[in-house]
Amino acid sequence: MFTLGNMFVLMLLAAGCAWLWHNHGLREKALERVKRHCASLDLELLDENVAFKRLAFVHDGKGRKRLARVYGFEFTVTGEQRHQGSITQFGAHSAHIELAPYPIQIQTPPSAHVVEMSQWRQEHKRWKP
């Protein structure tokens, strides 16, 4: 027989499954935001993954404390070292992305072609009267 207690347990399980499904969607949104952020800074997102770190009360842009999900991820600049990063989300909206200090690769301009003066004089001889 289907009792009220059985119905309560069934509804509790359905609510838990819906909550897990919703959290998975939020994690996917955080992953997409981190991928775009890393691409804009020319960083490589390692493991193509964000991992849930904690559920905490965090100050939002207006200074109020709100419940937020914090996800962690790892990135690299050179491919040799792993650096930590985190993204904070209030629901489906990303609050901010924080990156650990990392070395910046400076693009050096191609070296100028150096010409020896004697070689230049040979190539640019002028006819002398």
Rank of each mutant, 00 (worst) to 15 (best):
R54F: 10
V9R: 02
A18W: 07
V77G: 00
Q122G: 06
T78P: 01
R54P: 06
V58C: 03
R69D: 06
L4A: 13
G72M: 02
P109H: 01
P109Q: 06
P110Q: 07
P129N: 06
F90A: 00
T78D: 15
H24F: 07
K128A: 14
F75K: 01
E74A: 03
R69E: 05
R121G: 04
L4Y: 13
D60N: 15
T78M: 08
Q105S: 12
L10M: 15
G79C: 10
Q119H: 13
E48C: 06
L20P: 00
L26Q: 11
F73G: 00
L13K: 12
T78F: 09
E44Q: 10
H124E: 06
K62F: 15
R82L: 07
E98W: 11
L20C: 12
R64L: 12
L26C: 12
E48A: 06
A14E: 10
W19L: 04
A51P: 01
E28M: 09
I97D: 06
F2W: 09
K65S: 13
L31I: 07
I104A: 03
L67K: 12
A15R: 03
D42S: 09
L20A: 15
A51Y: 05
L41Y: 02
H83K: 01
H24Y: 06
A100V: 08
T3C: 10
R27Q: 09
K35H: 05
G63W: 02
Q107W: 10
V34D: 00
S86Q: 14
R64G: 07
G61Y: 02
P129W: 12
A15G: 03
G79K: 06
I104Q: 02
Q105M: 08
R126Y: 14
V34F: 05
Q84R: 15
S40P: 02
H93N: 05
M11H: 09
V77F: 05
A30P: 07
I104T: 08
A56W: 13
T3K: 04
Y102L: 01
I106H: 10
A100R: 11
F90N: 00
Y102E: 02
N6I: 14
A30F: 11
L67V: 15
R69M: 13
R27W: 07
L13N: 15
A112S: 13
L46Y: 00
F75P: 01
